[in-house]
Design a binder for these strands. Structure first.
Lengths: 226, 226
DNA sequence: ACAACGCTTCGACTACCATCGAACCGTGAT
DNA sequence: ATCACGGTTCGATGGTAGTCGAAGCGTTGT
């Protein structure tokens, strides 16, 4: 009867539209305040507060008090992974939604997945790294090769420094739009950071979409050209 | 506000305890009848029927009418993947549950994930295959090498035949107990089939656990010994 | 001190939905 | 034909959880 972890408890947390919207917003990776999330979810502030309390209590969301602000963020990569997985089946089974408009197209091309790059460009990056042997899968985990290390250093990403962090550096994260893997982990996060700080792309203010500038697109394509 | 696929719709489906129990039961991979699922979920038959209608309607479950029986099964691997992901965070955030008893220990050691082997033994198998170069990750997907093909054929698994199927042959599926990947896809299913038909292990009747016989354990270990 | 602001708590209302008993509908067996 | 069986539909009931306005609390700035 009751076996294993309690699925329904955590699923029910995501099962409310307001909370789902908040979690979607938090998939952007940046921490948000209660009022921002209330706006995002389309509910009043008290309602949002109640929901956030539940999300915290349920362990899906972490809160950091800072002065008179309280910043909410996803509790961890595992939660982000789950949200993406749910999005995957929602996408697959829910063609009754509005058909893919220009907005969805942007999401497909490139979007933020928690703190790294997903979508077609994310997958393209991942494929390139693996195909060129810059990323290799040894026994149990994905690690950059020596050539890969040099490749990243050319982008001012210090692989050695990231290695220190307790967080897994590389992960393959399954994509819901394209059905393939993209680069996750701290290395994925650093990669997205590079892309934005170099002005190749900016994060859309009201969605998780990542919109590339024309020059940024060229630079990115050139990076993968060989 | 409303962007991307509708998370809450599908999450809410999993959010009910009765439905979650049914889905857990279906993670065993075998199709079950409505009455079996009612028993599993601990609800009356009408209630179960109502839930199953919703699950079908929501696209999480497929039904196959066969005489006066109606067999229910998960709609696909993507759904199974999602369930595992949710289990993952439920496991991570829910230490308020009963502490890991012998039953949970069995689940950790080996269990069925939809139709393939998960848990420590599933991960051990996957690690061995990758470490020995029997499975290699080329540009975008995991494929058995020539040596791997021979390795599988020694177990009477015809890799060529599996390749024909429309279903992806190999997939890396993230594990909730151990935090690593195990072999999914039709090859993973064939592997589990081999293990059970050879009598190395049998599937527990009332859970997803896979219990190895002493001789089966030896045979399996020997398989991975090198 | 006082006021503005961000957020939480309280209380009351509402709506939805899970639940079950009983009746109903097919299919398969006698 | 008739009965047993698996399953669904219907109707009524009850509980639970989302919702918001108003009030309360702590922090920051003037």
């Amino acid at each position: 009867m009751k076996e294993g972890p309690d699925l329904s408890r955590v699923a029910a947390l995501v099962g409310d539209p307001a909370r789902a919207n908040m979690l979607s917003a938090l998939m952007g990776g940046t921490a948000l305040t209660a009022s921002e999330l209330a706006l995002e979810a389309g509910v009043s502030l008290p309602t949002a507060s109640s929901h956030l309390a539940k999300l915290c209590d349920g362990g899906l969301v972490r809160v950091a008090a800072q002065g008179r602000h309280r910043y909410f963020a996803l509790a961890g990569t595992q939660v982000a992974l789950m949200i993406e997985a749910i999005s995957g089946v929602a996408e697959a089974v829910g063609p009754q939604r509005t058909r893919p408009g220009p907005r969805d197209r942007a999401m497909r091309e490139a979007r933020v997945c928690y703190d790294h790059l997903a979508g077609e460009r994310g997958v393209a990056l991942f494929d390139h790294l693996v195909a060129r042997g810059l990323l290799v899968e040894d026994a149990e985990r994905l690690t950059p090769s020596d050539a890969g290390r040099r490749w990243f250093e050319a982008l001012d990403i210090d692989v050695g420094a990231l290695k220190q962090a307790r967080r897994p550096m590389c992960r393959a994260c399954l994509d819901w739009s394209v059905r393939r893997s993209h680069l996750s982990g701290s290395l994925g996060a650093a990669m997205l950071d590079t892309i934005t700080t170099r002005g190749w792309a900016r994060r859309d203010k009201h969605s998780r979409a990542v919109v590339f500038t024309p020059t940024g697109r060229r630079a990115f394509d050139k990076l993968l050209a060989d």
